[in-house]
Nucleic acid binder design. Structure first.
Lengths: 338, 338
DNA sequence: ACGGCCAACGAAATCGTTGTCGATCACCCG
DNA sequence: CGGGTGATCGACAACGATTTCGTTGGCCGT
């Protein structure tokens, strides 16, 4: 019985009666080997089921042909970005691996840095980082950020038009006649959250409605936080007639709170979210929301990264691009007139 | 300016005035180096910010200290398993990477095999496979399967007690007085789906209710398929008073169909799902379901795998374990009497 | 027939690390 | 003072691939 170990290139060479160098040349179809021998080598290769060791190859060539996606947690948003990246990576000869950080909040401080330095230049050739919070990325591998922390210096970014998205949400509610509108704001450190709020405030301003600070409560992109604050908001004597939640997860939490409080929806309260995650469409009534093309964001991020990786070393580095994709209003059943 | 490349062990050795071997010994704190030199080496190491190359180390030691989780797609189920695996892997010195297969259905034929052979023995030391469909796993790395394809030979498996789960669902509906109960069955090739149906049928039988074949329609674990079939089911003249969906995703799709048809829920129709994914709890009304401890399944799978990996080579291989975790009825708002 | 040339191939260096094993040296004991 | 004994360290051979560069041999032209 043949050994169950995976065969090495040496064994292939031996079997085919050629040198290791020749086998390598055949596999990477490089110039300088006769078709006859190449044929013979190929026969032996798939007879033995040989596959070259990615590790050994990486050591030699100094690149792994693997790109990583680093996500803080596997919420639907990250998962969707990941799928978008996978769409693009497939068929390019690159492998795709995902690294999920801590599941416990607060534990991921510095996680991104640690992982990047461990992996970069040794396990992955580049990375797509989803909602990264690190401020100084001083690493050797190229990085593309999706929906990053506010105030990043010069690294390529893909995000949605959050500013206009916030604007759209406010406009929709204003069109329906709402005047006392509250907002569950997002994670304060993320650019997307800041822009959504900014666009929202701008639209209110344009409509001549003063922004009352007590109507802006933190939702933090987190259902639990949002639930607590939505409850507080909805039990006030002068409770708002509409709520803009900075993302769908917190909007759904708000719906749940309203239901518990027996508030008629959308009769007595309108709720609009942001993201357009699948769950929002499934719920009863369907969640009105601002859609951002998450999967497409993943695709664009991957393209950006692959472009950098496959760029000729000679060509000068392209300036950090910033790709901003459009957002779009999706009206369903949780918003209504008055 | 120092080169921006990551430093090698050789440079550390040079800087510290010792040999490469000594540096290696210090880093892996192996016996045979004086504390004074060790101290000096350590100083240089974090002065230069040196980190050993995982690639080179892997090539030498023939193990990568990375375990992989292979999922067909990143639905909530897989994501939750992944988190469970991450819980266990953290702090063990192993890295965790996730490989997502095709996003398009049907494209993943043979995908598992390809990836395993490419990665196994070269990029990962072992793998947890979620709902694997391959039948012959002839690879060099240890594998643990979560909720596998039916009829696997001798590989360790972690799953939930699907048989009893199906039984619980049926019992619940029977207790509520339902007699004409339909089922949206799951993916026919998965063990879990078969067992859920089997438990369900058994409970019906015990109650003296003949199983009418026209009440069993495929849901396929897929919301789109389920939507189509649920529609057909609910527009029949003698439509069922209750539906058992083989998983929550299809149960939610059923709810959506019922809502579109204007069927009062749970007054005129009871729906029960399986899994207890978060979305089911968020919806209005909350989805009654059978819970399986998905995250815990991930944890157990990871433990099983790590046990195999860290087992002394001398000890004989333990027989393939099969860990079956309990399922539990979670009653919410989508089921009611009569 | 001989020199030159090109295609085809192989020997060897290399990537960065670990582990074995021999060399060195100080020290202690008889 | 000599020999034995640890402790400490470094030289070197792997690991499995890629790539450079030199060697071989055949063929062609004159």
């Amino acid at each position: 019985m043949t050994p169950s170990r995976r065969p090495t290139i040496r064994e292939v060479a031996l079997e085919a009666g050629v040198s290791v160098a020749t086998v390598s040349k055949v596999l990477n179809n490089r110039y300088g080997v006769a078709e006859a021998t190449a044929e013979r080598v190929r026969a032996v290769v798939d007879d033995l089921g040989y596959e070259s060791s990615l590790v050994a190859r990486s050591l030699r060539t100094q690149q792994t042909n693997v790109i990583g996606v680093l996500v803080a947690d596997l919420e639907p948003f990250s998962a969707e970005v990941l799928k978008g990246v996978a769409d693009v990576v497939r068929g390019t000869g690159y492998e795709l691996v995902a690294y999920a950080a801590a599941s416990r909040v607060g534990e991921h401080i510095g996680w991104e840095r640690r992982h990047l330095s461990r992996l970069g230049g040794t396990l992955i050739d580049g990375a797509v980082m989803v909602t990264p919070t690190v401020t100084d990325i001083s690493t050797s591998v190229p990085i593309v950020a999706v929906d990053p922390h506010a105030g990043h210096p010069g690294l390529p970014v893909v995000d949605a038009d959050n500013l206009n998205g916030g604007h759209l949400a406010a406009e929709h509610l204003l069109d329906l006649g709402h005047r006392r509108i509250a907002m569950l704001t997002g994670r304060a450190d993320l650019m997307s959250a800041q822009l959504r709020e900014q666009g929202f405030r701008a639209a209110l301003g344009e409509a001549g409605i003063p922004a009352a600070d007590q109507l802006f409560v933190p939702g933090d992109y987190d259902p639990d936080v949002a639930e607590k604050n939505a409850y507080e908001l909805l039990t006030r004597p002068d409770r708002p007639t509409a709520i803009f939640a900075a993302n769908d997860a917190t909007a759904l939490a708000t719906l749940e709170v309203a239901r518990r409080l027996g508030i008629d929806l959308p009769g007595a309260l309108s709720v609009i979210g942001f993201d357009n995650i699948p769950d929002g469409a499934m719920c009863t009534p369907g969640l009105t929301t601002v859609e951002q093309p998450i999967r497409e964001m993943g695709r664009r991020a991957a393209k950006l990264l692959l472009d950098r990786l496959t760029a000729e070393p000679g060509t000068e580095e392209a300036p950090a691009e910033h790709i901003r994709l459009d957002t779009r209003l999706v009206v369903r059943g949780t918003t209504a007139h008055v």
